[in-house]
Design a protein around this nucleic acid. Structure first.
Lengths: 234, 234
DNA sequence: CGCTATCTTGACTGAACTCAACTAACGTGG
DNA sequence: CCACGTTAGTTGAGTTCAGTCAAGATAGCG
């Protein structure tokens, strides 16, 4: 059992709040819950209204379409908020763990009440949502206006940047537990084409993705063909 | 010159606040500014940090890529917030008017201060951003996992729903001042293909888009091929 | 050791793009 | 008021990038 102030200090939401700020607010308690790899944490269309904040591990947030296809909306990482809705209602997307995943689970109603009585929390949540917005907008450019190469390159660079911010990447290297199939559902491509594209990227000595390990080889060129600008992740 | 409470009562952000709620807060004044059709209200990469709230008219929020392509992120409508960022920094996208456009312009810094001192504002902003998130996620499904037909159908249904909420659509009819070229940049397609797709939709007696006028003809079938569920717009 | 998930590759297909030409609508200035 | 330029929309022919289908390789696991 922990209070929310602990979350507030986690990256990338930032830690401008001291523990003291929250002493009168520990009614807003959160439990850190641990899930096994490949478990479903929250299911699309379900009515349970918890909000999740990722503490550690990899997850995917996805929406299944009627024809059996799915689109992965985002890969929430440490500090990211999932499931906040503008109104009461069913979940719009499912959250599933990829690795072992630790999440804070907060009652939606209690979080809203806490926002009402503590402006700093409202600000943090708003900022976090604004950042997610920017990420989604960038994914939209990816699927809408970039070809397979530049799209894949862009996403791998995004991951590198996001992971750096939570100390999970350095020197262009990081662990990425996503399968090519999952990558395909993120990028709006087929598994087969993801495979070919990764081969191309490797052959061009730009970036390699093998056995869950990503290594940026030629950052300058990669950034160029991806049209990558990290400003949106700040 | 108006105070922000006026905005708060506008759809779809909802009007749970009374004028009284804001009497001690009219330091947060906002000016409603009117722009001519096809003017640029805020430019990508610029450092001015106003936040815009659309009062009336049509606008597009877009991001230009290096190769001259652009992706339209959203078409903000009455009540929608544009330009809120998680940190200080340049604009991530440009905002341009399509029709005559009236927007409230609010200093980013002042808005954040107001959020800090008034929880209800923070809640409203957070909810508004969460809704935008849901819209972007849906656009992502569109470009990532739906074909031209169902993608176009989906967007036309989204517009119908969003416009209904601000009383600008009824009985499946609404005015839409977007060109096919703009539609293409929203949907991640080419102008030519948008044209062909609209013809198909018309020929199948599903929906017609002619001369800025949209008419849903067979809603049931249209919803079906689009895989449309309006829940995300609530 | 066999089962299953993941990855890889090749051959073929097709949805959407490109290029190009033409029509329609509109505005504006001579 | 018509001539001209400009923007928007339309259509056809040919191309291409990514998808589909199918088969095999690899590897992790119970």
């Amino acid at each position: 059992m922990q209070t929310l102030w602990q979350f507030m200090r986690s990256h990338p939401i930032g830690g401008t709040l001291s523990k003291n700020d929250w002493e009168n607010n520990d009614f807003l308690s959160v439990t850190a819950k641990i899930y096994k790899p490949h478990s479903v944490i929250g299911r699309q269309d379900d009515d349970n209204s918890e909000i999740f904040i990722v503490k550690s591990g990899w997850a995917i947030l996805y929406h299944g379409l009627l024809d059996g296809e799915r689109q992965i909306i985002d890969t929430p990482l440490t500090g990211d908020i999932v499931g906040f809705r503008s109104v009461d209602g069913p979940r719009l997307a499912s959250l599933a763990s990829i690795t072992e995943l630790t999440v804070y689970e907060i009652s939606s109603k209690e979080l809203v009440e806490a926002i009402l009585s503590e402006g700093r929390l409202g600000k943090k949540i708003a900022c976090s949502l604004a950042r997610l917005n920017a990420i989604l907008a960038e994914h939209l450019m990816n699927t809408g206006r970039r070809n397979a190469m530049s799209r894949t390159a862009h996403f791998l660079l995004e991951l590198e940047e996001r992971l750096s911010m939570v100390r999970l990447s350095a020197h262009g290297r990081y662990e990425c537990p996503l399968t090519q199939h999952e990558l395909a559902d993120i990028l709006g491509m087929t598994t087969v084409h993801v495979n070919r594209t990764l081969r191309e990227l490797r052959k061009a000595d730009l970036v390699s993705f093998k056995a869950g390990h990503v290594q940026v080889i030629n950052r300058k060129k990669l950034v160029e063909i991806a049209g990558f600008d990290n400003e949106y992740l700040r």
